[in-house]
Computed example of a mutant assay.
Amino acid sequence: PQTEEHFEICRLLGVKQGIIVITKKDMVDEEWLEMVTEEVREYCEGSFLEEAPLVHVSSISGEGIDTVRDLLDSFVSAQQFNEVHGPFRLPVDRIFAIKGFGSVITGTSMSGRVGIGDELCFYPKEMVAKVRGIQVHSSDVETVEAGHRTAINLQGVDTAEISRGMVAATPGSLQPGYMLDCDFLYLATNKKALKHRARVRVHLGTAEIMGRISLLDRDLLQPGDTAGIQILLEEAVAVWPGDHYVVRSYSPVATIGGGAILGNNPPRKRKRLSESDRKENENTFDILLDSNVEEKILLFLRERGTLGLTFDELAVRLGTFGKQLKKIISAPLSSRKIVVVDST
């Protein structure tokens, strides 16, 4: 059951590649090994592991271990981290102090890069500290990029002020909020329908936060169904659209679903009763699911009304920054679909 749950979590987190390893080969005969291999292949049909390499391993003889290591090396070498040049983000998983050095955090760098002397903001508290030192796999480095397990020595902050689940990021790159618009898959393995406003455990990065699922177009969500939902959180979070999340039931604790975040600071959406109102929610989620960035910009501006959005606020809503965002907004600016108002 635990392996099946972990497999579902990989799907919910958007994992697209992997290796199937069947261990303890030395403990069974060839006929049994062949039968297990066939069962595993059947189980993985239709998933991201359907065409994955499959390796039989024995920790006693060492057979297959070099093959696994080579496959992992080839996978890592082929990865393209498109977020390397954007803002830095690292969900904190451990915090401790080293005598003579001060506070240290560890985690996996999700995007961007950071160097010694740079400032990091800890969200959702929005507390700023300076990077004093960096280690990757126990080696000192000057900078670190996306995709690395990282330890960062900090100056100007105490360990008591930081907790697991916070995100260390480039200042101004995130905005805390209590509501998320999401694409949600309610796993087919669930035994009963999910009720509107069900209380759940939401896992984002390294954080676990209590919240409620607002079903915007129905009273019940059946196992195996997908829907656009709004998650109402009991604590603030700071995320980008495209980040993945996992939902576990309140009690007993079990993984029930998850998906991708579509809107990271949306207005409150109430359950719609009339057909026209429900259509409004459907149109919103159609835009959020679409890859047309211009339509998303217009949606976010409509949601804000006369308050509008600053360049930095729009960047956080889109998860797109700097020159890339300037290039994106050039077309709607030229066509006068959006206008810039000088507030000074």
Score class of each variant (00 low, 15 high):
7 F>T: 04
128 V>T: 13
338 I>Y: 02
212 R>A: 07
245 Y>A: 03
80 Q>G: 06
100 G>R: 13
102 G>R: 12
214 S>H: 12
318 L>I: 05
39 E>K: 15
194 L>F: 03
295 E>D: 15
293 V>Q: 04
224 G>Q: 12
222 Q>N: 04
141 V>P: 05
193 A>I: 01
169 A>S: 15
340 V>D: 05
104 V>R: 05
159 T>Y: 13
284 T>A: 07
11 R>S: 15
139 S>A: 08
150 T>S: 01
133 G>D: 14
238 A>G: 05
324 Q>F: 13
1 P>M: 12
179 M>Y: 07
302 R>G: 08
252 P>V: 06
252 P>Q: 11
71 L>R: 03
291 S>Q: 13
56 H>M: 05
132 R>T: 01
8 E>K: 12
118 D>N: 13
253 V>C: 09
197 R>V: 00
157 V>C: 13
189 T>F: 01
196 H>L: 00
230 Q>P: 01
78 A>P: 00
24 K>D: 00
282 E>D: 10
196 H>Q: 03
301 L>G: 05
298 L>A: 09
323 K>A: 09
18 G>S: 04
66 D>W: 03
63 E>V: 00
238 A>S: 15
182 C>G: 12
52 A>S: 12
208 E>A: 11
122 F>R: 06
266 P>I: 05
57 V>E: 02
199 R>K: 11
239 V>F: 10
270 R>P: 01
204 L>T: 04
332 P>I: 05
132 R>I: 00
30 E>Y: 01
248 R>H: 09
226 T>F: 08
343 S>E: 12
248 R>C: 08
68 V>K: 00
49 L>D: 04
60 I>N: 02
328 I>P: 02
281 N>D: 06
188 A>D: 12
248 R>S: 14
192 K>I: 01
270 R>K: 14
101 F>I: 13
243 D>Y: 14
